[in-house]
């Protein structure tokens, strides 16, 4: 077995190209569990923890470029103003020592349907910057996941960063778990309002083979808010609107029964948190109007 320890991004990409079968490890919070439990026997480990470039935060054109090696702890601490949905999600990950190590790139790379960062990234319309020694490309987060624990990442590719539009409106993230700390989501939901462009973003976690957008719910709400001029007048939302939004979010889920919860409960809970999320975001957007 080999242990590859690049210290620069160029070295990392070269190592990836040379060892496409290597398992990439950054924070280790997913990979090491699999190794410890004997479920993963890698022929090589590619350790990205020494690649300083990956830990950088950058700003460009109204986007925050979050390096793939940025930890949950850093997201919580450094980004609550610009990326409130993502920061809220980071706070729900594991526990302090997990958040000290786990990275956003690792969350994406593991591609678990339950990854906590995924719903807010979907809701924000984030893009994943992917690189190999030959090329660099970006792909919308919505197209990144192709199945449970599977993504579009090629065998010679690494995640460089995530580009997330800075918030222009309220965002929220909710995670339903059967314990009040340190729990994998039974289901989760993120909502982001983008009043500058009249868009609504959603993300659903742990209720399908991949993280999902509730596109019908987004379109319904965008249509309603646009047609009624609500982005400008900021009226109260009627119950019928909130209910329909919640119904459409629940309907977008493709849940299964597992040890953490039933499919019925997941669909039900998504409706509840969708309704509440919309109320919170809209109230915040209205800014205390009567």
């Amino acid at each position: 077995m080999s242990y590859l320890r690049p210290t620069s991004w160029a070295e990392a990409l070269a190592a990836r190209a040379e060892y496409p079968e290597a398992v990439v490890v950054a924070g280790g919070t997913d990979v090491m569990v699999e190794i410890n439990f004997g479920r993963l026997h890698p022929s090589a480990l590619l350790d990205l923890s020494r690649v300083g470039e990956l830990r950088a935060l950058g700003r460009e054109d109204g986007h925050v470029r979050v390096g793939s090696g940025v930890t949950y702890q850093s997201i919580m601490r450094d980004l609550p103003g610009e990326l409130p949905g993502l920061a809220a999600a980071a706070r729900t990950v594991g526990s302090p020592p997990i958040r000290n190590r786990g990275t956003i790139g690792g969350n994406l790379g593991s591609a678990s349907p339950a990854g906590d960062c995924h719903p807010p990234l979907l809701a924000c319309g984030a893009e994943v910057e992917i690189a190999s020694v030959h090329t660099s490309r970006t792909t919308p987060v919505a197209d990144f996941f192709v199945g449970p624990k599977r993504s579009v990442l090629g065998p010679d590719e690494l995640i460089a960063a995530v580009w997330v539009p800075a918030a222009t409106g309220p965002q929220t993230f909710s995670k339903v778990g059967s314990r009040n700390a340190m729990v994998i989501a039974i289901c989760s939901f993120a909502l982001a309002l983008h009043p500058d462009v009249g868009r609504v973003g959603t993300g659903i976690g742990s209720a399908g083979p991949v993280p999902l957008r509730a596109r019908a719910a987004e379109q319904f709400l965008e249509g309603h808010l646009g047609e009624t001029g609500a982005w400008e007048s900021r009226p109260r939302l009627g119950d019928a609107v909130v209910d329909e939004f919640a119904r459409l979010v629940a309907g977008a889920a493709q849940p299964i029964d597992d040890v953490r919860g039933s499919a019925d409960y997941r669909r039900h809970a998504l409706g509840v948190v969708a309704r509440r999320s919309l109320m919170w975001c809209w109230d915040e957007f209205r800014g205390g109007r009567p």
């Binding site: 490890v25 090491m32 569990v33 410890n36 439990f37 350790d47 594991g94 020592p97 000290n100 190590r101």
Partner: peptide, 29 residues
Amino acid sequence: CEQGECGSCSVYLDGVLVCSCLVAAGQAE
């Protein structure tokens, strides 16, 4: 637990609290 769920293996690595079961030994080089 070797899953990062129990915190019994917590140590400081470069001044940061971590679950040592989730740190590859090579990462402590």
